[in-house]
């Protein structure tokens, strides 16, 4: 079938736009001599050849990879935003390091008290004689030995804190890179969530800076009277 005839056939079921196009094609056909389809195909091939000449296979592959990279970055941004990494930097890691610092402080304080008591026992051991003295000294020796746990614990915790700070730095880097896409408002809204169940009330020991001491609790209880 002649090309013009094909267009005409399609216009029977086509839209108003297609009808207008058919009319214009008919007009051109009337003004120009009929074209050989092979000649048209040759022109199309020439155009395609020109287009492929603009981008080599390597460049096309590179372009595809760049597009894929763009999609991956967009996806990563969305996933990072969903993870709320800002929480890790602003809340979780500082919380963890504060807790670890509190462990070191509390165990150091406890060790200090144990050593004081042990030194008192040592003095007693020196004031008595015989089996009692030996037993007391053996006991205090074991306490001294056991107290060295504090040094080891402190060193291990220091290593953990160093690791956490390295993670914090990496997270900060991620936040800086994808900063504009990370929503921090959600994190802020949950900083002090309202407890809705008993589990929400079970937070373990509080850090000294945030904890109420017994006198605070007594005052609070008294305020209900």
């Amino acid at each position: 079938m002649h090309e013009a005839g094909r267009y005409q056939t399609r216009t029977k079921s086509g839209s108003a736009g297609e009808d207008a196009l058919a009319e214009r094609l008919a007009d051109v056909r009337n003004r120009q001599p009929a074209q050989d389809t092979d000649a048209i195909a040759e022109v199309v091939r020439a155009v395609l050849t020109t287009m492929s000449g603009d981008l080599s296979a390597k460049e096309t592959s590179l372009l595809t990879e760049v597009e894929e990279l763009g999609r991956t970055i967009a996806s990563a941004k969305a996933e990072i935003a969903a993870l709320r990494v800002d929480d890790i930097k602003e809340r979780d890691i500082p919380f963890a390091t504060d807790e670890l610092d509190a462990i070191v402080a509390h165990t150091a304080s406890a060790t200090h008290h144990i050593l004081e008591s042990c030194e008192t026992l040592d003095a007693v051991a020196n004031s008595v004689t015989g089996e009692a003295s030996m037993k007391l000294q053996a006991a205090t020796t074991q306490i001294y030995e056991a107290c060295s746990f504090q040094d080891i614990t402190g060193q291990r915790i220091t290593k953990v804190v160093t690791t956490l700070k390295a993670i914090e730095a990496k997270v900060a880097q991620i936040v800086a890179t994808f900063g504009s896409h990370i929503n921090v408002s959600a994190a802020a809204s949950e900083a002090n969530p309202v407890p809705t169940s008993e589990d929400d009330l079970l937070n373990g020991p509080q850090l000294p800076a945030h904890a109420m001491d017994q006198s605070d609790i007594d005052k609070l209880l008294a305020s209900f009277d």
Binding site: T111, H112, L115, C118, E119, Y144, S148, Q150
Partner: peptide, 8 residues
């Protein structure tokens, strides 16, 4: 604390 332990 370790100094104290070793000393004792």
């Amino acid at each position: 604390t370790m100094l104290r332990i070793i000393r004792n």
